[in-house]
């Protein structure tokens, strides 16, 4: 009991650090991706911190709320809270922190879906045609991708015997994972394809349509929630692809400072690699609406491939 309390007390500052780093990094990552996409399109490279500046400027601006949408005014704050909760549950540079027992793969995908749903509700609130149309498309994508998530969770459950994120990372840290690496990488790819809406061309235009009638602090909260969701998806997939870079708490004691620094470096590296993949996807893939069917098929293909590779590894390897 005392040991648990001690671990909790010692781990709380690390959890705070994880949350602060995640919040600080999220708009930077989005800015980096947007900058690379624009730069590779030959339209000049905007500064990486531009998105942060925009969010802060929005937060200082006076908001406008369309008549009759007071009930949906709370949606912006709830969306940001759901995204923050999801980020708390996804380890970035260390695992075994306080609250790690709450994290579950299906739950985290559900919370990130909830953050997406908050955008949809905000867009549908004023009853405007263009925003409503974009929101219906977003809701459609969210509902369609629900079919993929259980398959991904099945791969993780069959491979490691647990579906909790912390337990999964601990198993991959400890056990011989030679045969599990490829299926988990494929499952992470399926997760990214299904969950990360921003990877697809037209996502920014769709979000701009959805949030056209929101400004001020509400808009700032929603934009920050979008960025946090992107970073949470990338961190989750990165953890499944390369869990070795994460620092692990030993007993009640937090990880050593050197291990923590190495963990932060590995997180940045994983995120940078996944950003490069995101930029490539945004430059190559079709538009969002036309791509929804392709995206569903691709995500399902990755999931099924992960199952096949998992069993092929058990049969022959």
């Amino acid at each position: 009991m005392m040991r648990d309390v001690l671990a909790c007390v010692l781990g709380l500052p690390l959890l705070g650090l994880h949350l602060a780093l995640t919040i600080a990094m999220a708009p930077v990552v989005r800015g980096l991706v947007d900058g690379c996409v624009v730069g590779l399109g030959g339209r000049g490279v905007p500064p990486v911190l531009m998105r942060w500046r925009w969010i802060l400027a929005l937060a200082r601006r006076r908001g406008v709320r369309v008549a009759g949408t007071a009930a949906t005014g709370l949606a912006a704050g709830a969306t940001l809270a759901a995204a923050l909760a999801a980020c708390c549950l996804v380890p970035s540079f260390a695992f075994g922190l306080p609250g790690a027992g709450l994290s579950d793969l299906l739950l985290v995908t559900g919370l990130l879906g909830l953050a997406r749903l908050g955008l949809v509700v905000t867009a549908l609130g004023p009853g405007v045609a263009r925003a409503g149309r974009a929101a219906v498309s977003a809701a459609m994508g969210l509902a369609m991708m629900q079919a993929v998530m259980p398959v991904v969770i099945a791969v993780v459950g069959l491979a490691t015997g647990v579906t909790g994120i912390d337990g999964l990372l601990a198993r991959m840290h400890d056990a011989d994972v030679a045969g599990l690496q490829t299926p988990l990488v494929l499952a992470a790819m399926a997760l990214l394809v299904a969950g990360l809406d921003e990877a697809w061309g037209g996502a920014d235009a769709q979000a701009a349509d959805m949030l056209a009638n929101v400004t001020g602090p509400d808009r700032a909260a929603l934009e920050l929630a979008r960025d946090l969701a992107v970073l949470a998806w990338m961190t989750l997939a990165g953890d499944m692809i390369w869990p070795g870079g994460l620092a692990m708490a030993t007993g009640a004691m937090p990880p050593a400072p050197a291990a923590l620094l190495a963990g932060v470096g590995a997180w940045l590296l994983r995120t940078a690699v996944l950003c490069a993949g995101l930029v490539a996807a945004r430059l190559v893939i079709l538009s969002l609406d036309r791509g929804l069917r392709t995206r569903l098929g691709l995500a399902m293909l990755f999931g099924v491939l992960a199952v096949v590779v998992l069993f092929a590894g058990r049969e022959f390897g």
Binding site: R61, G63, V64, C88, G99
Partner: peptide
């Protein structure tokens, strides 16, 4: 956890002291 995060959002919005929303 969600309530805690919601509380953090509320506190940050109050501390920011942003102007009120036009209804």
């Amino acid at each position: 956890l969600c309530g805690l995060c919601g509380g953090v959002v509320l506190v940050m919005s109050r501390l920011g002291g942003g102007p009120s929303v036009r209804p």
